[in-house]
Design a binder for these strands. Sequence first.
DNA 1: AAATATACATACATAGGTGCATGATTACGC
DNA 2: GCGTAATCATGCACCTATGTATGTATATTT
Lengths: 204, 204
Amino acid sequence: MVRRTKEDAMETRAKLLDAAEALFSEKGVTQTSMMQVAEKAGVTRGAIYHHFENKMDLIESLMGRVKLPFDEMREQVAEGSEFDPLIEVKERSKEFIRRVQDDDQVRSLASILLHKCEYIDEVNPIKLRHISGRNECICDVEKLFETALKKNELAPTVHSRVAVIGLFSLVDGLIYNWLLAPDYFPLVEYGNQAIDSYVNGLKR
Amino acid sequence: MVRRTKEDAMETRAKLLDAAEALFSEKGVTQTSMMQVAEKAGVTRGAIYHHFENKMDLIESLMGRVKLPFDEMREQVAEGSEFDPLIEVKERSKEFIRRVQDDDQVRSLASILLHKCEYIDEVNPIKLRHISGRNECICDVEKLFETALKKNELAPTVHSRVAVIGLFSLVDGLIYNWLLAPDYFPLVEYGNQAIDSYVNGLKR
DNA sequence: AAATATACATACATAGGTGCATGATTACGC
DNA sequence: GCGTAATCATGCACCTATGTATGTATATTT
C-alpha cells in the first residue's frame, strides 16, 4: 500500500525468497503458487511481480542467493595446502554431507534440487545451476586425484576422472536417499563410512 | 466414437500408458497435461478418464506396469547360487546400470523417478514405489554382505547395513548424474569401475 | 516544496486444466 | 436378435494460476 524504505524493500524481498524456499522444499516447485508465496511472506502477489519477473526469475534468485557446499568446497580446495590429497578429498566430501544435514538452508536447497523440481528443458535455471556447479567442482577434485596418482597413492588402474565421478555420485546418492526418508539412516555416520570405503578402494 | 473390441480397448490403454511414459520422461509429470497424453495416443481425453480415474491413477498404473531392475535383482539374488556374495553383489549392480542404459522403458522410468517428478506428500505413489522398492532390495543385498562378513571377506569394521546403503547410493548417484547429462560420461564403463572400487574398499 | 520514482495493493483479463455429464456407436451376453 | 453395457468422443462448468494494468501512498530527488 505504501512506498517503503529501500531497506524495507530489501527485507520484503528477502522474506519472499525465504517463503519461496520453504514452500518449494516442502511442497515442490510447481505445486507452489505465487499466491502462496506471497501469503507466507505477508504480502500480496503484486509484491512478487515487482521484485521478480516471474516464477522462473524467482527461482533463479533463490539459487543464486546461497553458496552451495560445492562452491565453498572449490574455494577451500583451491587455497588448501594439500599435504595429502586423498585426505583432502575425503574431508571435503564429509564436510559436504555434514552441511546438508545441519544447515537448514543448504538442506532446503538440496531438497529442491534433488526432489522438489522437475528437470525439464535445457534452459531450466535449476538444472543449469546444478550441472555447472557440479562440473566446475569435478575439475578441481580431479586435480587432487591426479596429485594422488603422481604420489603413487592410488592403484595405477584408476583414472582420475572416473574416480571423481564415482565419488560425486556416491555423495549425491547418499544425500538423495537420505532426503527421501531421513529416518531410514543417519546421513553423516553412514556417509562417512561409505566415503572411506570408496576412497579406500581406490588405493593400491 | 465407437465401442471397440476388448483387445482394441487394451491396446488403447497401452497406447495411453506409452504416451504418458514418453511425455512424462520428456517434459516432466506436472508439465504434461491429460490433453497432451490423449493427443499423443491418438484419442481424446475422454478415453483417459474411461481407463483411469485421474492423473494420479494413470501414474500408478505406469509405475506398476514395469518391473524395475531392483525387482528383478531381488528375484535373481533370491534364487542365485551365491558362490561368492561379493561378486554376486557387484554383478547385480552392474546389470542394474546396464539396463538403465540400454533398456528404453527402464531408462524412461528411472528418468521420471529421478528427475521428472516432484516428491511431495507422503501419499505420492511415485515416491512410495521408489522407497518400497529400495527398502525391500536393501534387505536382500544386506544378507549377501552378511554372508561375506561370515566368510571373512570383508573388513571386520564394515557393517552390512552401511555397506548396502553406500552401494545403493553410489548406483543411484551414478544413474542420477548420468541422466542429468548423458554425454558427460559413459554410464556403464565408469559405473562398473566405481562399483569395483567401492566394493574393493570394503574388503579386508 | 514540487516532481518523480518507488513499493507495493487491487482488480481484471485470459488461458489452460480438470472432472463430469452426456451422447453415439457398436461388441457382447443371453 | 435384442437389450445391455462397454468404449470412447464431445461439450460444459468450474476453478486456479498467471501476467498485467492500474491505483495509491510514500520515499527520494531536485
